[in-house]
Nucleic acid binder design. Structure first.
Length: 687
RNA sequence: GCGCUCGUAGCUCAGUCUGGAUAGAGCGCUUCCCUCCGAAGGAAGAGGUCCCGCGUUCGAAUCGCGGCGAGCGCACCA
């Protein structure tokens, strides 16, 4: 509804400017600084002031005087130094919202790929990984909410150094046999991902003290690459088990995947060999015959770095002098596959079925039947830490060098800053800090040192605290039900916490802050939905039913776009004049009632805010900031709090008013729940 | 050294892309509000050199240049 008005007003004002000054200008629409200024602000006069050499205020006055009424607009006024502030016609707007005007659905044929999570399968997930997964998952939900077809990929580096190091740790430090590792995996109490966390940290420390131990790593990597030997077997065992652990952890947060492309198949199916041929043929890379990169295939720095001169100083090695490919090389091949440009595909096997019936598939090198089609996207978002910007630039440069410019343009590094730990939280966790560290704003997470907060631990802690809070308020409810509510609250708190910061802000993770359920938090937003639902529940308990407000307003069903303009049809003018309209409304009864009820500021602000859910999602996609949608949810909840305190709905004696307040409550719930579901947050039954 | 990002209230952050109205929110602090649709809430208040300087502009937190301070990158690791 809101975007219809925006468009209509922009067009009308644009036409006025055209006829007044013969200037073709796109009209910008802003939100006024204060709600008392109206609903829309047009800074058009400022832009024209320069061209016309006239005071903005005078121009605004001319534009204001230039035309007749705009449908849906109650008044316009000149404010500040030349703003045109627009007040909407509340009756018309309200009637339009009830009639569900402007609802659109669309079908798309193209596919968007979002790659996120991508955790090394060698230890438990930590809070840094959570930021990645929550950002990625929320962005996926945002895209899907607007009708996009989205495929979620989680890349598994199951053959890399990090997995190898855990294998080395099990063999040489822990002296564990394959059978012992297997039995740990099968014993849920052993918490295999936690075991690996410690083994990895210990092994990293051991390398620091015994450089010759690196031989073990090399031997293990060699075995993994060759695909046989006890090391390779254990590597697969470890990686597969940890992938399962990550899937389980993320599922706790309502995060699921469609496909797991694995590095092992990229190797075995020779993805790189195919990409290598393409890169050589197109001369995107060349064989270096001198300098420090002698004997390597390199991509010149000029390909991916602005202002770089040809020379080997900042060129990037793609194939090492020993003939093995670097990570970036493999990533170029993978990116080509995502766009369907490699001319090769994986085979797939079903990896896991989620409790809701959704399947996640994994790549395999053996032919299988019955798998869906993956890859072949038209746009690709890679949710990756901003520290890898340089490498992502190289990947995109690879596409460009192969003349895949459209795909290069559609390769988006959805970057974000890291999650660190606040010094206070480090101390709480028993991590030793120097005096210098204590004065820093944050301390970096380091998997090699075992410094970090495990995702499952954090979630458990949140659930425990939420359960205390829930129990203190609902002793009468059964344990299972309280635990369910506590879990939903914990997830709401965690997801909101990860989303409230914009992407390029470093999060200094702090337990006290993350465990807070007050103020700008997920639980605050959930609470407003719970309170609204309570009203409807109490209504039913009293034996009353929710009035059919649409029928009350004499708006015909089925829901459709309101007829514009003349109000022809079943509701002839003249309409009652207690809420005068500047033009004949589509639904006179609705127009009157809504106009009357929405005269209350808190009602109007809530309706307006709630009606913007759709455009909030679109704006957040446009800006690439899930944080903006989180903020919208919070503001909508705040708006409801004002409404809630102002209007005791159930005790209202005026029937029209009560019907309106109940409808308002229901509409708010619908819009907030829609927004929360895009944020991946559920609303508990009670809290 | 080069590149990227950041510097806004005591703290944590929005706002900067696209310049415009008295610079916002949450936390913390000070005072209030439960005969209840559960206060995980609400009302009110104190709190700002938008890092500094110069420039562009009718107008700069926002754009440009130069400083200062902080972080992150710049492997034949991933």
């Amino acid at each position: 509804m809101f975007h219809i008005l925006e468009k209509r007003i922009a067009e009308a004002i644009s036409a006025r400017i055209q006829s007044l000054y013969a200037i073709e200008a796109p009209v910008q629409i802003e939100q006024p600084k204060q709600s008392s200024f109206g609903e829309l602000a047009l800074p058009a006069a400022f832009q024209l002031a320069r061209q016309l050499k006239k005071a903005p205020k005078a121009i605004a006055a001319e534009i204001d005087a230039a035309g007749g009424a705009i449908e849906g607009v109650a008044s316009m006024e000149i404010a500040g130094n030349g703003y045109l502030n627009v007040r909407l016609d509340r009756g018309a707007y309200g009637a339009g919202v009830v009639a569900n005007a402007g609802a659109v659905s669309r079908e798309v044929a193209t596919k968007i790929i979002v790659e996120h999570t991508n955790i090394n399968p060698n230890k438990a997930a930590h809070i840094g990984h959570l930021r990645n997964a929550v950002l990625g998952d929320t962005f996926v939900r945002m895209l899907r909410a607007t009708g996009e077809n989205v495929e979620v990929q989680n890349y598994i580096d199951n053959t890399g150094v990090q997995v190898a190091d855990v294998v080395v740790g099990f063999q040489h430090l822990e002296r564990k046999s394959i059978e012992e590792v297997r039995s740990m995996i099968h014993d849920p109490a052993a918490r295999f991902d936690y075991v690996c966390w410690d083994v990895y940290a210990r092994m990293s420390q051991y390398y620091d003290e015994h450089k010759d131990a690196l031989e073990w790593r090399h031997a293990t990597l060699h075995s993994i690459e060759a695909g046989h030997g006890i090391e390779a077997e254990m590597a697969h065992l470890v990686a597969d088990a940890i992938v399962d652990a990550h899937i389980a952890t993320m599922w706790r947060l309502n995060i699921a995947y469609d496909v797991l492309p694995r590095e092992s198949e990229i190797l075995h199916l020779q993805f790189w060999a195919t990409a290598f041929e393409q890169l050589k043929q197109r001369k995107a890379i060349y064989f270096e015959i001198e300098g420090k990169n002698k004997g390597c295939w390199v991509m010149p720095g000029s390909a991916f770095r602005e202002g770089s001169i040809e020379g080997d100083d900042d060129s990037k090695v793609i194939v090492r002098s020993n003939g093995t490919v670097t990570y970036v090389g493999k990533d170029i091949a993978y990116q080509l596959w995502k766009f369907g440009l490699l001319g090769k595909d994986f085979y797939y096997r079903k990896w896991h079925t989620y409790p809701n019936g959704h399947d996640v598939w994994a790549s395999t090198d053996e032919p299988q039947t019955g798998a869906p089609q993956f890859g072949k996207g038209t746009r690709v978002y890679n949710v990756i830490d901003t520290r890898q910007s340089y490498l992502q630039d190289v990947v995109v440069a690879g596409l460009r060098a192969l003349d895949y410019n459209t795909q290069a343009d559609n390769s988006i590094h959805f970057n974000y800053e890291m999650v660190a730990l606040s010094p206070r939280t480090c101390i709480e966790m028993g991590i030793e800090l120097t005096e210098e560290d204590k004065r820093l704003p944050y301390v970096q997470v380091a998997g090699r040192k075992g410094i970090g907060v495990k995702a499952d631990d954090l979630l458990d802690k949140l659930i425990e605290k939420a359960l205390e809070e829930v129990t203190s308020r609902h002793k009468e409810e059964p344990e299972e039900s309280r635990r369910r509510a506590a879990t939903q609250i914990a997830i709401g708190a965690l997801r909101y916490f990860m989303l409230k910061f914009t992407r390029n802000s470093v999060i200094a993770f702090d337990f006290a802050e993350a465990l807070s359920f007050e103020g700008e938090t997920g639980p605050y937003v959930q609470y407003s939905a719970v309170r609204a639902r309570n009203i409807l529940r109490k209504l039913a308990e009293r034996g009353e039913t929710l009035p059919d407000f649409q029928a009350w307003l004499q708006i015909p069903t089925p829901i459709g776009v309101a007829p514009k303009g003349t109000g022809e049809g079943a509701y002839p003018a003249p309409y009652p004049t207690d809420y005068p309209a500047p033009y004949p409304p589509a639904y006179p009864e609705a127009y009157n009632i809504m106009g009357r009820q929405l005269a209350h500021e808190d009602c109007w602000q809530l309706l307006l805010s709630a009606s913007k859910a759709g455009s909030a999602i679109e704006r957040a996609i446009a800006s690439g900031e899930p944080a903006h949608l989180a903020r919208y949810a919070f503001q909508l909840a705040q708006s409801y709090s004002n409404f809630y305190h102002e209007f005791p709905v159930l005790s209202e004696t005026d029937l029209e008013k009560k019907a309106f307040l109940l409808w308002m409550t229901k509409y708010f719930i619908e819009q907030l729940e829609k927004t929360l579901s895009v944020l991946g947050i559920e609303v508990p039954e009670y809290m």
